[in-house]
């Protein structure tokens, strides 16, 4: 299945997109596209408390979804394919308050990172989707302005800023 089909799925689900449910919609889209389910994180509440210490000060409303065993094909995840999918995603979101901000690709690591924002304010809702060859993470979090600037400076390490995705696939 190509990223185009994923984009079509997202376009079809546009009525739900942007209604404050962007995180859930992305999770569903990834599950549908890759035929996987988000990983169950035991004791997520406890994990949240533990990882909270690793997050930048002032962040809140943290949501995380992790997908394993994606088995992404290299040709399926060419930057142009992924960008097309995410641009469509962003276009749907932008109409309802989400703005695509960053696309970052690292070919050696096979990592693609996309950052979207809600309306900028003292605290800004940020959605970070990171795709590795065998794993993906989706993060939604409210961040203060200084953290937003940090994300712009190092978008390729956006997930790591929140204590997620520090390890790389070794498969």
């Amino acid at each position: 299945m190509s990223a185009r089909l994923l984009a079509l799925f997202l376009a079809a689900s546009g009525s739900l997109w942007g209604a404050g449910r962007e995180f859930d919609q992305i999770v569903k889209a990834i599950e549908s596209h890759y035929g996987v389910r988000r990983a169950h994180i035991p004791l997520m509440g406890v994990a949240n408390l533990v990882t909270k210490a690793a997050r930048p000060a002032g962040t809140s409303g943290f949501k995380l979804a992790i997908f394993e065993d994606l088995n992404r094909r290299q040709d399926d995840d060419a930057p142009a394919e992924m960008d097309e999918f995410m641009v469509r995603l962003g276009a749907g979101g932008a109409a309802r308050g989400l703005t695509p901000l960053v696309q970052a690709h690292s070919r050696p690591d096979g990592v693609a990172t996309y950052i979207f924002t809600g309306e900028i304010g003292h605290s800004t809702r940020v959605l970070i989707a990171t795709f590795e060859r065998y794993q993906a993470t989706v993060i939604e979090v409210q961040v203060p302005m200084n953290v937003l600037l940090q994300l712009l400076q190092s978008p390729g390490h956006a997930a790591q800023m929140f204590g997620v995705g520090n390890e790389r696939d070794e498969r």
Binding site: A80, L101, H105, P155
Partner: peptide, 13 residues
């Protein structure tokens, strides 16, 4: 981007 080892695109409207 397809040829690059690392690429970053940032858009601020």
């Amino acid at each position: 981007a397809a040829k690059a080892e690392e690429s970053v695109n940032i858009t601020l409207d």
